[in-house]
Structure formats: structure tokens, C-alpha cells
């Protein structure tokens, strides 16, 4: 890695983290001496503190009791703690992840198929174009209350909310990709005897892939947003539910734990997409090496 100055890139990153965390942890303590310097926002009542967030994380994840004593694995305290709270951090994360996954997969698959069909058919795209533009103009998240009303407070409403935000994103990217295929490729395939279906499979799909992948990283974030909003509106379990409960108790550290978990989940999911993309679009990487 290229070094900038005496601190490497990683050095700077560590320094920035240390500064932000320090200000967050101790900044508000300075308020008594320097009231003009410290804004109200640093009040731990709103944003908690790293140390409190960490303690809260240990409690919510059942690693320690509320008194800060570690829950033993072998004496069954850990299991008991999990059983007491149906929406403990682990269960909440699992359920949110599960719904995100289904919303993402259904959204990507249906958006991709629809984009491919309409992108390859001038007639169908002409017919559906005004409807798509109209529906796309609706902020999809505004539909979340209606979806919860229609599908109940169970998992299905979360999956549908997630699906509806993902599907359009992937659809539009696939559609554009399918429209912008180099005619030289389709002509070459046709002259080598490819049928329409073979052209779709061997030319249209691979050359649209770069466009589809461009939409997948935002799509995974959108899927997560869809699920969380669905959980805000009505749910029994999930990380969104954890945030709402902590807010009701006025407990900032509880909310922050959920936010940090969401951040980690988001980072991991994006990394998976990125790895998949690097593999499937490896033919593109040689170009930049040229």
C-alpha cells in the first residue's frame, strides 16, 4: 500500500477512529469547563457513550447479567438468559438477517427477470413505461405502513417491504443494461447460429451482469432499510423492534447497540457482494490491468 507521509493509510484510519471515539466518550465531560465548545448533541442521553454501549451490548447479547457478571456457558445461565428474552440480540439479528435475505433475493431475481424481458422487448417496454415511471415516483418506504397492514406484523410484511425497495433498483439497472448491449455481440452470436434463447443466455445475460452488480451493493442496503422500517411500524422481533423498545425506555445505549450491529451486518453483506462481483466479473479486472 502506498504510504502518505509518516502515517500510513491504516495509521490515519486508526487515528480518526481514536479521535471520534474519544470525543464521544469524554467530550461531554468538558462541558462543565468549556460550555461554548461542547454542543448539546454530545449529551450521552442522546448518543450514549462507547463504554455504555459496550456494557449494553454485553447485557443484550446475554454475555453478562444486568449486574455485569458474566453469564456462564456451562451452568446454563447464558441459555436461560436467552430463553427469558425472545428478542435478545442474537435472535433479533438472526430474524432481521433472514428477512433481509429473502427480501433481497426475491427483489433481485424478480427485478432482473423483469428488466431482462422489458429490456429486450420494445413493445412491452413501450406499454409498461408510464406505469413503471409512475410507480417508481412513489417513495417506496411510504408503502411500508400499508404493507404491514396487509401482511400483518409477522415476517412476511418485512420481506415484502424489503422486496419492493430492491426490485425497482435492480429492475432499472438490468433494463438499462439489456438496452445498451453492443449490437456487434448479438450479430456475432446470431451469425454463428445462435437462437434467440441462446443469445439471451450467452450474450444478454453476461453483458448485463456488470449493470446488475452495480445495483447489488445499494440493493443490499435497501433490503436492510426495508426490513428495519417494517419492524419500526409493527413487529414482535428484529433489530428494528429493539430500537423502538429502547427508544420507548429512553435508553440511547440500547439503540446504539442495534445501530452498531446493523452497521456490522451491512459491512459484512456488502463484502460478500463485493467478493462475488470480483469473481463473476473477473474478465473486467484485466482491462484495468492493461
Amino acid at each position: 500500500m502506498k504510504r502518505y507521509g509518516t502515517l500510513g493509510t491504516v495509521g490515519w484510519q486508526v487515528l480518526i477512529c481514536a479521535i471520534v471515539l474519544s470525543v464521544w466518550q469524554w467530550g461531554y465531560d468538558l462541558r462543565a469547563k468549556l460550555p461554548w465548545l461542547v454542543p448539546d448533541l454530545l449529551d450521552p442521553y442522546f448518543i450514549s457513550k462507547p463504554s455504555m454501549i459496550f456494557d449494553n451490548f454485553l447485557i443484550q447479547s446475554c454475555l453478562t447479567s444486568k449486574l455485569g457478571v458474566f453469564n456462564g456457558w456451562f451452568n446454563g445461565e447464558f441459555a436461560k438468559c436467552l430463553a427469558r428474552n425472545e428478542n435478545n440480540l442474537w435472535a433479533a439479528t438472526a430474524i432481521t438477517l433472514k428477512n433481509t435475505f429473502f427480501g433481497f433475493v426475491t427483489g433481485v431475481v424478480s427485478g432482473f427477470v423483469a428488466g431482462l424481458i422489458l429490456g429486450r422487448s420494445d413493445r412491452l417496454s413501450a406499454i409498461f413505461q408510464p406505469f413503471i415511471t409512475a410507480v417508481n415516483s412513489i417513495p417506496r418506504i411510504a408503502l411500508a405502513p400499508i404493507i404491514v397492514l396487509a401482511f400483518g406484523i409477522g415476517d412476511m410484511s418485512k420481506i415484502v417491504t424489503s422486496w419492493i425497495v430492491v426490485v425497482f433498483l435492480v429492475f432499472f439497472n438490468t433494463f438499462e443494461g439489456a438496452r445498451s448491449i453492443d449490437e456487434g455481440f448479438t450479430n456475432a452470436a446470431r451469425l454463428l447460429g445462435a437462437s434467440e434463447w441462446q443469445i439471451t443466455r450467452t450474450v444478454v445475460v453476461p453483458s448485463t451482469m456488470a449493470w446488475v452488480f452495480a445495483s447489488l451493493t445499494p440493493a443490499i442496503s435497501f433490503a436492510l432499510i426495508g426490513v428495519i422500517v417494517g419492524e419500526f411500524i409493527g413487529a414482535e422481533r428484529g433489530i428494528g423492534r429493539l430500537i423502538i423498545e429502547s427508544e420507548a425506555r429512553g435508553e440511547a445505549s440500547g439503540m446504539m447497540v442495534a445501530v452498531v450491529v446493523l452497521m456490522l451486518v451491512g459491512v459484512v453483506l456488502s463484502a460478500i457482494i463485493w467478493r462475488l462481483q470480483a469473481y463473476l466479473l473477473r474478465w473486467q479486472r484485466q482491462r484495468s490491468a492493461e
Binding site: G184, N187, A188, A189, L192, Q198, S207, M209, W283, Q284
Partner: peptide, 26 residues
């Protein structure tokens, strides 16, 4: 009838071998 284009229209997502074998695959 075979056709060779002015601009090579090799599929960038296929390796050289897979490009050459494309017609046989079809």
C-alpha cells in the same frame, strides 16, 4: 456462412478458448 467483423467482437466475458469454441457450444 461465417462472418468476420471489422472490429473484433470477441465476448469480453469469455476466455480466448471459450470465445473460439462458442460456435461449437451453440
Amino acid at each position: 456462412v461465417g462472418y468476420v467483423f471489422q472490429r473484433d467482437t470477441l465476448f469480453p466475458w469469455r476466455t480466448v478458448a471459450d470465445n473460439i469454441g462458442y460456435g461449437l457450444e451453440l
